[in-house]
Amino acid sequence: MTVLQRAQAGDENAFRELTAPYFRELHLHCYRMLGSVTDADDAMQEILLAAWRGLEGFEERASVRTWLYRIATNRCLNAIRDSKRRPPAEPVPPFEPPPPSRTSDVTWLQPYPDELLQEPEAHAVRRETVELAFIVALQRMPPKQAAALLLVDVLGFRTADVADLMDTSATAIKGALQRARAALPAADPAPAPETERQLAKRFAEAFVADDIETITSLLTDDAWLAMPPAPHEYHGPPAIAGFLRASAEARTTTLALEEAGANLQPGFRCYHADQHAVRRYAGHLVLEIRGEGIHRITRFVS
């Protein structure tokens, strides 16, 4: 018997063997669709349960991979529809922040740890398809447009296959693709690795020292700071400096950063240490480097 036949006969070990090669890429697909690792984890449990229950009726008219992507995409679309993008509770800052430049509508965003992208099949993941700017753009699209874009442009499925997978016509998929592509931000060339490493290192040193002047000098003129799940955004070096200064003046603990890349971008786990050197996790920082400067700081608040 083949692995598929054994799995269809109720062999759980065979089912795990059948689905394991696709787990990591399906998880990343769910993250791209949902913008949240937590929601992707939950979706994967539902996807595997649905696959197990539906395996007996799988007739091999498509590959196992395509069949799993059908289940995954539709589960994600259902999750988005059912939740209606309910934002998480807005954290209450321990100080009075300056008025934000604007507020974000994507407060459920979470970072995707680079260690989850180190699996053997992840070597083909293109950086521009996992960076935070791309993930945010997907969250702002109508969900079916985002799904079509991911399935065709990122994962390489044929338009006709995606139409079948999403139970629609090829014409509808082509229209969704056209609109989704137009909504994507312009892709900037990836910075030189050494430039990125040096900028991230200098930022980290200045951040833990509350050296606002140095941080400001590292920013591009159009840099901005976001803080999911808080909706506040600060645009431009003066606004960012104002927020960081207010935060530093109110803080009674020492900052520490631990290098931890996310979304294939420079990142750090952030900790607060009290007078007894007891460290408390305080979120994740992710940097977007553009040219010779830091264009975006995303501080994921714990």
Rank of each mutant, 00 (worst) to 15 (best):
M33S: 05
Y112Q: 14
Y271K: 01
H272Y: 11
R126T: 08
S169W: 15
M1K: 10
H232N: 15
P97Q: 01
K84G: 12
R24E: 03
R75H: 13
H284Y: 07
T168P: 08
P120R: 07
A182R: 09
P113F: 05
Q5M: 00
Q275V: 12
K84D: 13
V162L: 10
R279Y: 02
I240Y: 02
P87V: 12
T19M: 01
A182P: 07
A273D: 00
P91I: 08
Y69T: 13
A72Q: 02
A14G: 03
D222P: 03
Y112G: 12
H284V: 00
A62N: 08
V125E: 14
A160D: 15
A163C: 13
L48G: 14
V92Y: 13
C76F: 09
A182G: 12
L28T: 06
R24N: 10
L264K: 00
Q5C: 00
E96Q: 13
L199P: 04
A7P: 11
E96S: 06
L218N: 11
P93Y: 12
H27D: 02
D114M: 05
R202I: 08
H27C: 07
H276C: 01
T103G: 11
F15T: 07
A133Y: 06
V37G: 02
L49Q: 14
N263K: 00
L77W: 05
H27S: 09
L257T: 09
A183W: 06
L116V: 00
D164P: 03
V92T: 15
V286E: 12
I80R: 11
D221W: 06
S104Y: 14
A262M: 06
G10D: 10
A147P: 05
Q139P: 05
P191V: 13
M1R: 04
F95E: 11
R53N: 05
I240A: 01
E12C: 09
E194Q: 14
T66D: 07
G283Q: 04
R85K: 07
L150F: 08
G242S: 03
A250E: 09
L184F: 05
T159R: 15
A50E: 12
S101W: 02
V37L: 14
N74H: 15
V301Y: 00
R251S: 09
T254H: 04
M44Y: 06
S104M: 14
A14S: 12
S217F: 03
R61C: 08
A246G: 02
G175M: 10
G267S: 07
L199N: 01
T19P: 01
S302T: 09
E205T: 10
W67T: 15
R6E: 06
E292V: 04
E46A: 13
P94H: 12
T107R: 15
E131Q: 10
T252H: 09
T2V: 02
T171G: 13
A180V: 01
R70I: 11
L109K: 13
R245T: 09
I212S: 00
